[in-house]
């Protein structure tokens, strides 16, 4: 209520424009000092935010005895051996883990983008009976924690003989399992003018052709956003591999990292950090390249 009275009152004020101009001037004067304070705050906050990550990077290059009790970031000597030794520290080399992760991630991303864009196209562009109900149900699945469906899914995949393979991780991705991506794409598709579909219809396209020749090419940013998020989340996924993969040769990178701590909780911290750093390198690279898309994607979908 209070805000509406404020808004209502302003235009009737006789010298609104002048006062506003004066305020802008005053603001500009005060602006400089405020801007400085803001920047100091922001810089300190960023440093605090980023410090742990830098510390991890620095520690990955330090000898083990310099990691703890030591604030300094610069190692006395650069221990690149942490990387080479860490890479082969376990019974199976990290080459294998990275290949496994890449395999699962690439297929998951493809599955996600295809199946979710299918569903999104149906929801955003096609008419069919029951559409609104299905859409509501789809949105409800956003709420369901993975833990709730995990056990029955596990039993299902166990019976199918899929445990200890990548199928339980990949097949659901081809069944539009992540409603978040459907929602993101629906939001995007809805912005495209309807006339385009209709012009294409008259130009002889059926719905499949419209999806393929009109909607997809115009949705590259949305597809890319979905692909990037899908990449990041699959790469980081821990619970799925934890449940379904038991043989170390099948491990993905996060699973391998976690065995790393479990297997020797004592000494090789430098190596542990080295592998931790490597495990997030793909994500950081993706983030640096695509941060615009990622940030726009968050604002667009309003999710996660």
């Amino acid at each position: 209520m209070a805000d509406t009275t404020l808004v209502g009152a302003a235009p009737t004020h006789p010298t609104t424009a002048q006062i506003a101009a004066a305020i802008r001037e005053e603001r500009a004067r005060r602006g400089k000092r405020a801007a400085l304070l803001k920047h100091i705050f922001l810089i300190i906050t960023s440093l605090v935010m980023i410090y742990p990550l830098i510390w991890m990077l620095a520690s990955s290059l330090k000898p083990d005895n310099q990691i703890f009790g030591n604030l300094g970031l610069w190692p006395s000597e650069l221990r690149w051996e942490n990387y080479t030794a860490g890479w082969n520290a376990m019974a199976v080399s990290f080459t294998r883990f990275f290949l496994n992760s890449t395999f699962v991630t690439v297929l998951s991303v493809i599955g996600n983008v295809i199946s979710c864009s299918f569903a999104a196209y149906a929801f955003a562009r096609l008419e069919f009976s029951g559409k609104n109900i299905w859409f509501a149900l789809m949105m409800m699945t956003l709420m369901i924690p993975y833990h709730v469906v995990l056990i029955p899914q596990y039993i299902l995949f166990l019976k199918a003989g899929w445990v200890d393979s990548y199928l339980p991780l990949i097949v659901p991705r081809f069944l539009a399992g992540d409603a978040f991506f459907i929602f993101l794409m629906v939001q995007f598709f809805r912005q495209l003018p309807r006339d385009l579909d209709e012009a294409a219809m008259i130009d002889g396209c059926n719905p499949f052709k419209i999806y393929w020749a009109i909607i997809l090419p115009l949705s590259v940013p949305a597809m890319a956003t979905a692909a990037i998020f899908s990449f990041i989340w699959t790469w980081e996924d821990f619970l799925g591999p934890l449940v379904y993969l038991n043989d170390m040769r099948d491990y993905t990178v996060p699973l391998a990292l976690r065995s790393f701590i479990a297997q020797d909780s004592v000494s090789a911290y430098g190596q542990l950090f080295a592998m931790s750093v490597l495990s997030i390198v793909p994500i950081v690279i993706f983030f640096i390249i695509f941060q615009r898309l990622i940030i726009r994607g968050i604002a667009m979908s309003g999710l996660k």
Binding site: D195, A199, G204
Partner: peptide, 16 residues
Amino acid sequence: ASQRNLSMVFQSYALY
């Protein structure tokens, strides 16, 4: 629509 052998010009032009 595609089989009616007609063309349509839209107000928004609807160019791809």
